[in-house]
Nucleic acid binder design. Structure first.
Lengths: 332, 332
DNA sequence: CTGAAAGCGCTTACAG
DNA sequence: CTGAAAGCGCTTACAG
């Protein structure tokens, strides 16, 4: 209960050994007699001693904290992606004796991250999104802070981990084309998100393999709001498009609303698919065909990469994780 | 750039003063000559010195970290509530020189929180949800860790802050009754969430004031999944209920789906309202009438309460924040 | 195998 | 107004 203030010195005194010895018993480093080690450990166990990690950190020039960089611009905070990611990271960190400190940033304002770094509160960082020309990434590099990026980046020196969005989108598109879709449209968001580009590439990959395919494909990027989606849907209906693929759930919901307002039935009159599967779509009827990623796993793996980096291990620069195709009612 | 390793000792030596003096110039505590203070501050400014907060913390027996306790049981992690809350907390903490460390817990497993406490990584904590018989709360109390609870609790000694769910729900229900609804149903989730109880009370408050009201009200609590909602909706339709009020967005989505499947039009054939307004409902058509809370503000205020608590200030035990009624198309 | 001592980068009585 | 010294709770060469 109040053993919380027990120190290594108290234990040393109580046991008639030196602090050095106690420290060694705990850390397991350095030579120490089997007997003494056991005695110390027994005492510690009995009195619920637990070391002051901050003091340990000061001595070792470490903090045992990992910085988690989260974006909060526009509505992005609300995406379940970040929470699931955080869960994976937090669990991995925990199991290695690390804690997670958060820094919320926008492309324009990375002061929280800067504070964490200049205050020496973190040993390394995890970025949960990558932009082309990423401010947090740049800052971390300049200041020599080890980090791993969730998402992809052109920077070959950065350790990065991501789901294979490109393949995922190729496969999803492939599925649709196989079913004989002849007119297909893609709607996507901000092009400065690298994930947008990857998904676009995957979409296009699906066509490059099919010389015989003679349909129509339409692409709309940088879509910002539901109003824009609405106008696009209007256009697509006029063109008798058979399937609308959205790059994320927000866009997909907008598409579904636009269709619902016009009383267009899914999938009977038009098919719909999404490249991401979150709670926004989860309980929709009809259920929406999409690609699913194990985000918690992604966070977990990212964290372990960072931990290995901190241990000065050699680490693969690029990791690609899989995905799961979820073909449901809205398009099959 | 690499001024990051500058210490108070370096500065003292460079300026020919003692470390004590430098420390005083920085902290502003203790008597110090105006001249020397300026000299030190100028040097610091020029060389971008920033103190090692960990060392400072060790000396002062503080960490300048706040623990943020987040639940991750069932699908709760995905609720945007927690992210918005986190944003508010993080910004408030930041502006006071504190950082936020996360602990993810379930009612059964609070090891992450325990670690943060026994490792002395945090000065205090913020709970982002309250349960009846709350394990994290109990733990924090037993260990003398200052905390504030977002949400309400019976424990009168705990500092708590919450939106006024009860009034909000009374007002929403009132609005509906005023419009002449004669058959109204309430659907709610887990009763061990205190917020569920508050909302229920508010719902019932709306009736206690109306002796003349002679309609029917139905209540369903502890609803766990969409299947259960579906069955209830079936029942409610048979009873010709005029309005279904859901205690949260997840339930509301379930209700909407159940209605959509049966081709029942909202609001023409039945009205629908929700007690919470998140991204799950945001882009729905028809737009859903609900109560809206400023969650970022809630987090912000919670954090400032905790900070005042850490400064040993007297703090109001209970703070109730307002809400906003959003009457839209689904019920008016 | 064990310990005295210096050190991590700060703060803070205490003395002058 | 300023500084020498002890202290926060640990680690780690160095010496024995």
């Amino acid at each position: 209960m109040d053993d919380r203030n027990l120190t290594i010195g108290d234990i040393a005194e109580e046991l008639g050994v030196s602090k050095t010895t106690v420290s060694r018993a705990i850390s397991g480093k350095g030579r120490i007699g089997e007997q003494t080690r056991k005695r110390v450990l027994a005492y510690i166990e009995e009195h619920h001693y637990s070391p002051n990690v901050v003091a340990k950190g000061l001595a070792q020039n470490k903090t045992f904290n990992l910085g988690l960089v989260l974006p909060w611009d526009y509505n992005i905070v609300e995406l379940p992606f970040f929470q699931n990611c955080m869960l994976g990271i937090s669990r991995a960190a925990s199991s290695h004796g690390y804690d997670v400190l958060i820094s919320m940033v926008t492309p324009e304002d990375i002061t929280q991250l800067k504070r964490a770094v200049t205050n020496r509160k973190i040993d390394g960082a995890i970025l949960t999104r990558t932009l082309t020309d990423d401010a947090p990434m740049k800052y971390l590099k300049e200041n020599g802070v080890p980090f791993v990026a969730i998402g992809s980046t052109d920077d070959d020196m950065a350790v990065q981990i991501d789901n294979d969005h490109r393949s995922a989108c190729r496969e999803l598109t492939d599925k649709l084309l196989e079913r004989g879709v002849k007119k297909i449209a893609l709607i996507g968001g901000d092009e400065s998100y690298i994930v947008t580009r990857s998904r676009l590439s995957g979409f296009e990959d699906a066509f490059t393999g099919r010389k015989e395919w003679n349909g129509t494909k339409l692409t709309f990027l940088n879509i910002k709001n539901s109003h824009e989606v609405d106008q696009i849907v209007e256009k697509l209906l006029a063109e008798q498009v058979e399937c609308i693929v959205s790059m994320d759930d927000f866009l997909c919901v907008c598409v579904l609303n636009a269709l619902q307002q016009r009383q267009i039935a899914v999938p009977r009159q038009i098919q719909v698919a999404s490249f991401y599967d979150s709670s926004m779509l989860k309980y929709r009827i009809p259920s929406i065909s999409s690609v699913r990623f194990n985000v918690e796993e992604l966070g977990h793996r990212a964290c372990e990469l960072l931990l290995r980096l901190l241990d000065e291990e050699e680490v693969e620069k690029r990791t690609l994780l899989g995905y799961e195709m979820c073909i449901k009612e809205s398009a099959k």
